[in-house]
Write a protein that binds this DNA or RNA. Sequence first.
DNA 1: ACGTCTCTTCAAGAAAATTTGAACGAACTG
DNA 2: CAGTTCGTTCAAATTTTCTTGAAGAGACGT
Lengths: 198, 198
Amino acid sequence: MPSVAAKQEESNNSEPLWREAELHAADAMGRLMEFWGFRRHMGRIWTILYLSPEAMTTAGLAETLQLSSSAVSLSLGELVRWGAVRKTWRPGERKDFYAAETSVWKLLRRVYERRELNLIREAAETFADAQRRLEEARPRATPKERRRVDHMRKRLSRLSALTKAGERLLGLLVAGRMIDPKELREIDDPEFDEARDA
Amino acid sequence: MPSVAAKQEESNNSEPLWREAELHAADAMGRLMEFWGFRRHMGRIWTILYLSPEAMTTAGLAETLQLSSSAVSLSLGELVRWGAVRKTWRPGERKDFYAAETSVWKLLRRVYERRELNLIREAAETFADAQRRLEEARPRATPKERRRVDHMRKRLSRLSALTKAGERLLGLLVAGRMIDPKELREIDDPEFDEARDA
DNA sequence: ACGTCTCTTCAAGAAAATTTGAACGAACTG
DNA sequence: CAGTTCGTTCAAATTTTCTTGAAGAGACGT
């Protein structure tokens, strides 16, 4: 089968010898990113750029990762929106070049700030709102129901406190301050309810 | 339209007046859980149990959330595996009853321990492994390639350090200790490479 | 031991997401 | 100003994930 041999040969010639290591690293980051709720290709593309000494074109990325140009465009666009990749240009070159933002801490912070913080804030609001609805319904409750409603109120107040504490801690993280998980732990304490009501 | 009125009536009679608040809270938790990489029903089911003063049956859960019994079984099973829900039984009752683990901190810890910690550990290992492949390839590199390889080595070493630091911080979190994000931030420092190489 | 009641597993169907090729449009070149 | 070259967007197609109804297994009471 000469065609296979030729292909093999060609790939040996055209593939730089570090390509293997590069792709493994990119895949690891792809898995992390996918787990973290992003497109997997965002992690892969960012890593290729991060490991490259120079900015790269969409064509180069498509070639390296064997992706269609539209797939590259889509993920790159999102990376740019997240500030994880910057467009640059070269005199005389018509193409867009892309370079990775190299400060991982900055990136982490931005994601926590824009995404996780909002998410938990919304949850906190919803729990608070659920509590409100409950208060509203309480007067209409029969005495038997009232016990049940009161139990729910206690539990909802804990969920509310937990999410608010989470929000606070995330805020500290984003600010680069130290975080003490004790705050969260204490809310589980059975004494908590009394303490809070007081 | 008497049928609509009748339906309305019926739902008013059969649905406890706290149901609305309960479902809202459950949905909020469902969103959080889904975002966090779990099935959305896990969050919803757990919340219903958490808000309930008594243990519930699969039938009760299916009814409350309008889910098929298989959907309930699937998500409940996973919740039990994560220790978020416990099976209990009642004398004379044939059905299984389920109760929520109420210590949210315990649950958070368990997930970080079993899942996130492994994930980041694997990533750290992959980066280390990629570094190794690179070292292996280096002798075969031409001088021009070598510059490129050396750049990659520096970057890979940062990724490796970052993931290892992340692993360490997660470990501290799981242990309930304080966390200082400074560690992560410092790795982005350009001085880092020299410091590390020394 | 048989029939009933529960829970779980499975495979088919539905829904959601990712991926791709093609069309469109913008920016540059000659 | 035509002709390229790129980059983005879109809708169709594929893949993956979720959901469900039905069949299977286990336990209990009769």
